[in-house]
Simulated scan of single mutants.
Amino acid sequence: MRVLIVLAHPLAGSFAAAVAATLEEGLVASGHAVDRLDLYAEDFDPRLTSAERAGYFDTPYDHSGVEAMVARLRAADALFLVFPQWWFNLPAILKGYVDRVFVPGVAFDHDTAGGRIVPRLSNIRHLWVFTTTGSPWWVVHLYMGNPVRRLLKRGIGAFCAPKLDFRMLTLHDMDRADAARRAAHLEKVRKAAARL
């Protein structure tokens, strides 16, 4: 299986980077092919251009500005997102990746009758999310309603590839996690990679 790992963290030595490296090691050890996309290291521009927005309903939609990113997404069987949750949301660079790459003709088609969008990401069979939060579990789930999970599973996943296997593994209260707790979480990540 070919797995696209998308990492969204500005620091090369971050815990998110350690999670991405652990995933890659585990997947390769299990015989999977891995394409690791570090959005910051590759200097991805998350800003939707005026031309991209103005042409959003053009057929075909012009995604030439992100053609290489689109090709990597189309080549994948699984998409693993690795990022910290900031203010109960995706980092801006990852949101921009979704805005610019999950576009008409790639992730979905517009329904010509004006109904729901038509999914196109049938190649993506697994969408797994590996993330951290600075908040405790109860704040994310009970107070905020786990907005990132809802966005990725019910929004992007359901609308672009409705039959995919969605999973999410989160280390909560990251700012107070000691070395032992972080190591234990990386072991969970390693085991998850081995189960794909």
Rank of each mutant, 00 (worst) to 15 (best):
residue 63 H to R: 03
residue 64 S to W: 02
residue 64 S to L: 05
residue 64 S to D: 10
residue 65 G to A: 15
residue 65 G to R: 08
residue 65 G to P: 01
residue 66 V to H: 13
residue 67 E to W: 02
residue 67 E to T: 11
residue 67 E to F: 09
residue 68 A to M: 10
residue 68 A to G: 08
residue 68 A to R: 13
residue 69 M to K: 06
residue 69 M to Y: 15
residue 69 M to V: 00
residue 69 M to T: 01
residue 70 V to G: 01
residue 71 A to S: 11
residue 71 A to R: 14
residue 72 R to F: 10
residue 73 L to A: 13
residue 73 L to K: 08
residue 74 R to L: 12
residue 74 R to H: 13
residue 74 R to Q: 12
residue 74 R to V: 04
residue 74 R to T: 02
residue 75 A to Q: 06
residue 75 A to L: 03
residue 76 A to I: 06
residue 77 D to I: 04
residue 77 D to G: 14
residue 77 D to W: 04
residue 77 D to N: 11
residue 78 A to S: 15
residue 78 A to P: 05
residue 79 L to D: 06
residue 79 L to T: 05
residue 79 L to R: 07
residue 80 F to T: 01
residue 81 L to Y: 01
residue 81 L to M: 07
residue 82 V to E: 01
residue 82 V to N: 00
residue 82 V to L: 01
residue 82 V to T: 04
residue 82 V to Y: 00
residue 83 F to L: 11
residue 83 F to Q: 03
residue 84 P to R: 11
residue 84 P to L: 08
residue 85 Q to R: 11
residue 85 Q to S: 07
residue 86 W to R: 02
residue 86 W to G: 04
residue 86 W to N: 03
residue 86 W to F: 13
residue 87 W to S: 09
residue 87 W to K: 04
residue 87 W to G: 11
residue 88 F to S: 07
residue 89 N to F: 11
residue 90 L to I: 09
residue 90 L to A: 07
residue 90 L to P: 03
residue 91 P to Q: 10
residue 91 P to F: 03
residue 91 P to Y: 01
residue 92 A to G: 07
residue 92 A to N: 01
residue 93 I to S: 04
residue 93 I to E: 07
residue 94 L to K: 03
residue 94 L to C: 08
residue 94 L to N: 00
residue 94 L to G: 02
residue 95 K to P: 12
residue 95 K to Q: 12
residue 96 G to N: 12
residue 96 G to E: 04
residue 96 G to T: 10
residue 97 Y to M: 07
residue 97 Y to I: 09
residue 98 V to N: 02
residue 98 V to K: 07
residue 98 V to E: 14
residue 99 D to V: 12
residue 99 D to E: 14
residue 99 D to Q: 05
residue 99 D to G: 10
residue 100 R to D: 10
residue 100 R to G: 02
residue 100 R to S: 12
residue 101 V to C: 10
residue 102 F to I: 03
residue 102 F to L: 08
residue 102 F to E: 09
residue 102 F to G: 02
residue 103 V to Y: 06
residue 104 P to V: 10
residue 104 P to E: 10
residue 104 P to L: 13
residue 104 P to Q: 07
residue 104 P to F: 04
residue 105 G to I: 00
residue 105 G to P: 04
residue 105 G to V: 02
residue 105 G to Q: 04
residue 105 G to M: 00
residue 105 G to L: 10
residue 106 V to A: 11
residue 106 V to D: 15
residue 106 V to W: 06
residue 106 V to I: 14
residue 107 A to D: 03
residue 107 A to G: 11
residue 107 A to H: 14
residue 108 F to M: 12
residue 110 H to A: 09
residue 110 H to W: 15
residue 110 H to M: 11
residue 111 D to Q: 02
residue 111 D to K: 03
residue 111 D to G: 13
residue 112 T to F: 07
residue 112 T to C: 13
residue 113 A to W: 02
residue 113 A to I: 03
residue 113 A to V: 05
residue 113 A to D: 12
residue 113 A to L: 14
residue 114 G to K: 05
residue 114 G to Q: 03
residue 115 G to W: 11
residue 116 R to K: 13
residue 116 R to C: 09
residue 116 R to G: 06
residue 116 R to S: 09
residue 117 I to K: 15
residue 117 I to T: 05
residue 117 I to S: 13
residue 118 V to G: 15
residue 118 V to L: 15
residue 118 V to I: 15
residue 118 V to P: 14
